[in-house]
């Protein structure tokens, strides 16, 4: 064995090593890298962040005194500037919900097309690649692209100009919540397509045939059969999109206006310009709490759907 391995340029394997892997005696140790990874890169930072959120901010840093003031500030605000964080959080969730709805509406027909209407496997593969390709470009690049498209003298504007159309609505498009939603919809639609496609692809065609066989037409079959059976995929994609888009800070910063600040921008500024790490940590944990509730709810829903 060693000779053969040496011949093809592989490191020689001692019989003992070979034995250990195949026997699976200490197989638990195979999990160590994963657990270690999660602990070092997720567990520890989260724990430190949580400690941070319970400390007292000072003018130049952090005093290690236990306090719940940071959370009180997030939920209740202060007398000076009122309550700003919870409304921002709600706005973030609203933007996230809008992105999720738009992405679902866009993604479903495409996933349906891919799964049922394209019978040529080569065409399907090509379309599938087209869906994935945007994921290879950097997020920042794609967000910037929308700045170019939506700007007053941007792509959309000049096309409308060429057509001799009034483009006054464009005046307010860039640097608005609409722009934020458009940009994030573009970014999250591919994920949505992939999760819905994964479910539709596994749907046995005989179910659809059975529905037609029982006298139910195309549209009704789609509504009473395909839509309910695709819900697990829609829920998975929606959870993903909702979680990521309501916690986004790049799109609002690039294409959003002054009033479109989202909760992640607040966190960002507390850790940056304002230099109030304890408050930033507290906001982050409140956001994390909301997302955790969302994931728990969707997991429940998904379980019910699969029954």
């Amino acid at each position: 064995m060693s000779d053969a391995a040496a011949q093809v340029g592989l490191p020689p394997v001692t019989p003992e090593e070979d034995h250990k892997v195949s026997e699976g005696k200490g197989r638990a140790f195979l999990g160590i890298p994963v657990v270690g990874w999660m602990l070092i890169f997720f567990g520890v930072p989260y724990f430190l962040l949580f400690l941070q959120s319970l400390w007292e901010p000072t003018a130049f840093g952090v005093a290690h005194n236990w306090t719940l003031e940071n959370y009180k500030l997030v939920f209740l605000g202060d007398t000076l500037s009122g309550n700003i964080y919870i409304p921002t959080l709600l706005r973030s969730l609203k933007v996230g919900a809008m992105v999720t709805i738009c992405a679902t509406l866009l993604a479903f027909p495409i996933a349906y097309l891919l799964a049922f209407k394209i019978s040529n496997s080569r065409t399907r593969l090509m379309l599938y690649v087209l869906v994935i390709v945007p994921l290879w470009a950097s997020y920042l690049l794609r967000a910037y692209a929308w700045k170019v498209i939506l700007g007053q003298n941007g792509l959309l504007g000049s096309v409308l100009d060429q057509l001799g159309l009034e483009n006054t609505f464009l005046n307010n498009l860039l640097y608005s919540q609409t722009a934020v939603v458009i940009t994030m919809t573009h970014i999250f639609t591919p994920f949505m397509i992939l999760t819905i496609y994964a479910v539709l692809e596994r749907l046995p065609p005989s179910l659809i045939e059975a529905s037609k066989d029982l006298g139910v037409g195309r549209m009704k079959t789609f509504l009473t059969l395909v839509v309910p059976l695709s819900l697990p995929g829609v829920i998975a994609g929606a959870t993903f999109t909702m979680g990521l888009s309501s916690g986004d800070f790049v799109a609002p910063q690039l294409v959003g206006g002054k009033n479109d600040v989202m909760i992640a921008n607040q966190v960002y500024s507390q850790f940056g310009a304002t230099n109030n790490w304890p408050l930033g940590s507290a906001i982050a944990f409140v956001l994390l709490g909301f997302v955790a509730i969302l994931v728990a709810l969707s997991t429940q829903a998904e379980k019910r759907e699969q029954l």
């Binding site: 046995p204 005989s206 179910l207 045939e209 059975a210 037609k212 066989d213 029982l214």
Partner: peptide, 16 residues
Amino acid sequence: AYKRPVNTVFQQYALF
């Protein structure tokens, strides 16, 4: 298919 006066029992039953 949905307008024909026939019904089918499918191979793997195809129950919803």
